[in-house]
Amino acid sequence: MERKRRGTGKSTLSDVAKFVGVSSMTVSRALRDPTKVSETLVGKIQEAIKELGYVPNNAAQALASASSRLILFVTPRLASPGFQAIYHQMKQSLKKMGFHVLLAELNNKQADYDSISTFISYNPVLVIKFDIQFTNELNDYLSKSKIHLLSIGHGVNDNTDSEMMITPDFKAVFELMAYKIAHRVYRNPLLILHGEECFSQDIIRSWDRMLLAHDLSPNRVHPIYLAPSVMAGFDVLKEMQTSFTDTDLVVTSDENLAYGIWFACREMGIAVPAQLAIVCVGQLDLNQSGRSKLSGVNIRWDTLAVQAMEKVCECLELPSKLKPNSLAVEWISGESY
């Protein structure tokens, strides 16, 4: 029989057994090998686990305890803009603090209990989700399990009262861009946005506010649904010549799209930036050869990572010695604007 974990308030295997009306040994057997009990009983036990927020230890005894040192990252796409920078910086900080980090990549934009239950069975003390929504059922389960939640992404309607939120300051992004636009005469800017881009809701809202503030037509957004790449950007210019022929400034949410548009301009004899200016918003990899030629508003993901680590320390009641960089965004000058 599993003893109650002192001082945590978490449900135990005994609580699940009492809820179902069977012995703790039967519940343990069902969790180890569901084929040894009836399907009906397995269903009742799973319902009890969800209702009580019980976290099975499974094969994670070395990590799972009342003083778990495991932190789980969940994201639908490892290539999501900003994820790699934030994940690696936070992982280094967490390892120095003695935590183990587990990364889960789920191939959809929403996670339910079944898709994440295996990872949760390792009893993390904190779940960090990046640009992914959790179902209400999963949020309720994690809340009952006393597992902290930190969300890095755009504001969505699945956030619980106990969930902490960190998101890029897109208002600052487009205020900086508006300042730059004010010094040039651009009347028909167009935003090229990947259809499944993280933070897309916040980007579009901030973009429309900027256009309206400068008496420009809002809703000038062209979504694409192919994976953002140089080739996709190359094809976008051809689409623009059909739907947005008056465009004089292109803003992209991915630098590969920006370079694709730039290369297409060269092939079609369109002068950059004289005839068409190009600006990238989000993440610029200035370490790559030749990439410094692109102009853009660079989001300081390192600043966001420090803010997230402060939230981690706050919820886990740990001392924080981090010094956040107050610079949230910065303008990168190049030849494309």
Rank of each mutant, 00 (worst) to 15 (best):
I224Q: 11
Q241N: 02
H183W: 02
L176F: 04
E239S: 09
A264I: 01
I261T: 03
Q241E: 12
L176T: 13
E196G: 03
E197C: 05
F174T: 11
G260W: 06
K238A: 09
C198P: 06
M231R: 09
L226R: 13
T252W: 08
D235F: 06
T247Y: 10
M231N: 10
R184T: 03
R184W: 01
L211D: 04
D254M: 04
T252D: 03
Y179Q: 14
M268D: 04
T247K: 09
G260C: 04
D202I: 03
D235S: 08
R266L: 09
Y186P: 01
M268F: 05
I261P: 01
I204W: 02
Q201V: 12
E255C: 04
S243Y: 09
N188A: 09
A227G: 00
T242D: 06
E175T: 07
D215R: 13
D248G: 04
V251I: 14
R184D: 02
C198V: 10
M240Y: 00
P228R: 12
T242F: 05
T242Q: 13
F174D: 12
L237N: 03
C265W: 05
A264W: 02
F263S: 09
I204R: 12
A227C: 01
P223C: 11
A264E: 12
D202L: 10
A178Y: 01
F263N: 10
I204M: 12
D208C: 05
E175M: 08
E255G: 05
E196T: 03
L226N: 12
C265M: 03
I192W: 06
A258T: 10
P189M: 06
D248L: 05
L193T: 02
A264K: 13
V251E: 02
V250G: 02
F199S: 02
A213M: 02
C265Y: 04
P223F: 15
H214G: 00
L226G: 13
E239I: 06
E197D: 11
